[in-house]
Amino acid sequence: MASAYDTTDVPAPRPVSGEVVIRMAGVQKWYDSFHVLKDIELEVHKGERIVICGPSGSGKSTLIRCINQLEKHQKGTITVNGVTIDAHHRHLDQVRRDVGMVFQQFNLFPHLTVVENCMLAPMRVRGTSKQEARDIAMKYLARVRIPEQADKYPGQLSGGQQQRVAIARSLCMNPKVMLFDEPTSALDPEMVKEVLDTMIGLAEDGMTMLCVTHEMGFAKSVADRVIFMDRGEIVEQATPAEFFTNPRSERTRNFLGQILTH
């Protein structure tokens, strides 16, 4: 598909503020003897939209899961919004309040209704009153355009609707950064667009986003920066225009060749 290399639809680079929201310095991680993250250096600025891509097993999911410590790294430092993750539980709590996450498998709570899914964390983590939590939940359910599903259970919704609820659930905590871990990979093809549209809407509102995704169209039209990972390393990072037209590394070229020519 030659049009994938067509640059006419790639927007010019946006100016991004200098404020650093996430800083990863010298981050290393092993699963036993398998070196899954090798000396990761990454700075994410406020309002920046980053897409991380790479072959499976390259460490891209592990990288974003280290940011909110669903996975523990063994070396290096991770700082989110000025808070460095360490052994103090208080610091981890602070980071998790500031970082929202959307999973490939949605991970909605099946025993709670849609609106209760959205109300749980504001009430139990922030101590928001029930009425206020409901108002917040309804606001974000309206934003992902499914307020009418509020009283249904997740199991009654389609995959695309569930993923939009998961996005709303994260937004209810008013995060400073959103992490997306292959948010469309578990969806039927006809539902991918509604989720991507929701993400594009978030990006337009200025949300800082890190997305692990194979949606190269999304990368081209939304990302400020595309990061390519392979075997636990950041091999290359560039603006989408550069990344798709003039990849510097051989490994990047091979990867793009594989995903864009099928």
């Binding site: 909110n68 669903l70 996450m101 999973f103 991970n107 749980l120 983590v125």
Partner: peptide, 20 residues
């Protein structure tokens, strides 16, 4: 994934256990 989603939302162990 339920533990992960609850943790990512900032719930600590007692709340995570009790509500999720």
């Amino acid at each position: 994934g339920q533990w992960e989603a609850a943790s990512a939302l900032g719930l600590r162990y007692p709340g995570l256990m009790r509500y999720v």
